[in-house]
């Protein structure tokens, strides 16, 4: 068990996006020892930088294209030769889109769903994970196997029974259907349990002796210790919900309930020649994700690497 904790720690260090802390020191040592070799290393570094720069620019072409097209007139988007920098920046796309489609409503709907689902998933997930990892009772492990088992079943395989159920409950075409379907995922329980297993039981035991109830231990000992895992789960759930297309596509039929993804897709379907405006909408739909990713990239990558993302 401690072994696993160490592994996890090592893992997070390895995956840390920045430089590992001891690199500079190591480099200095090598430099002192073999200077000509260091010289050679510097040239290879330059070559590597050049290769990486070219590669990243090539891989980022879709994003560059997206931003550049969003600032053009429609007839300037698909030109020969390609215009990477718009000859004239059409900033008005970014002001017009709010009146062309109910973009603000779409954003609000996406935000509403993502926030509610994330809160419920994190709360119920961490509670259940505590039950599965720190409280002993008969049948617990069988129950957890049920959770794991459903993770292995593709979601598409049971979407039809889910749909029938929602239809009978009269919940189609409402946010409640999506909230009920997505807020109690097995994935969140699994991710949190993985993390709680690395917290030594002695901590809980000590708190028990101090007279804390199990709920007190969860709230005052475990939750503060599991902030990184909570952050990972919250970020992954938020981004998954924000980006989800199939859920809203199946359940939300009226325009006023649509999320950004549905609104954007329908805009493309109706006005497929409005290239510039479509790209403006795409940029707007990606910006919140970019912001969240940049703020919490560390938690993202840890969460993804420890458990594998849903999907």
């Amino acid at each position: 068990m401690t072994n696993m904790a160490e592994d996890l720690k090592a893992e997070s260090r390895l995956l840390g996006i920045g430089l590992p802390p001891n690199t500079a020191e190591e480099d200095r040592r090598t430099e002192r020892r073999r200077s000509p070799r260091e010289q050679k290393k510097r040239t290879t570094d330059l070559v590597i930088y050049a290769v990486l720069a070219v590669l990243v620019v090539a891989l980022m072409v879709p994003f560059i294209w997206m931003v550049s097209s969003s600032l053009k007139e429609n007839n300037q988007v698909l030109t020969v030769p390609i215009q990477w920098i718009p000859s004239e920046f059409v900033w008005s796309n970014y002001t017009d889109i709010w009146t062309r489609i109910p973009m603000m409503g779409y954003l609000q709907n996406s935000l509403y769903l993502a926030v509610i689902i994330t809160c419920l998933q994190v709360l119920t997930g961490s509670l259940a994970a505590y039950g599965f990892s720190k409280v002993r009772f008969p049948g617990r492990d069988v129950l957890f196997l049920c959770y794991i088992g459903t993770i292995a079943v593709p979601w598409q395989a049971y979407m039809v029974p889910q749909y029938i159920m929602m239809q009978n409950l009269g919940l189609t075409n409402s946010f409640n259907a999506l909230i009920l379907l997505q807020a109690f995922g097995a994935f969140g329980v699994f991710l949190m349990r993985q993390y709680y297993m690395t917290i030594p039981d002695e901590l809980c035991e000590a708190a028990r002796i101090d007279g804390l109830s199990e709920y007190g231990i969860w709230a005052r000992v475990i939750l503060p210790l599991s902030k990184p895992a909570l952050a990972s789960l919250a970020l992954l759930t938020f981004v998954n919900t924000w980006n989800d297309y199939m859920g809203p596509f199946i359940y939300l039929t009226s325009n006023r309930l649509w999320t950004v993804q549905l609104g954007l897709r329908s805009f493309v379907g109706q006005f497929d020649a409005e290239y510039a405006m479509i790209m403006t909408g795409s940029v707007i739909s990606v910006i919140p994700i970019l912001a969240i990713f940049l703020i919490g990239q560390r938690y993202f990558i840890q969460g993804i690497a420890t458990s594998g993302m849903k999907g």
């Binding site: 119920t124 509670l127 259940a128 049920c146 029974p161 159920m165 097995a186 199990e214």
Partner: peptide, 16 residues
């Protein structure tokens, strides 16, 4: 501890 999540999980994942 498990119940809040389990009710949702049972109804909307396990049964389907």
């Amino acid at each position: 501890f498990i119940l809040p999540n389990f009710l949702g999980f049972l109804a909307f994942t396990l049964i389907p």
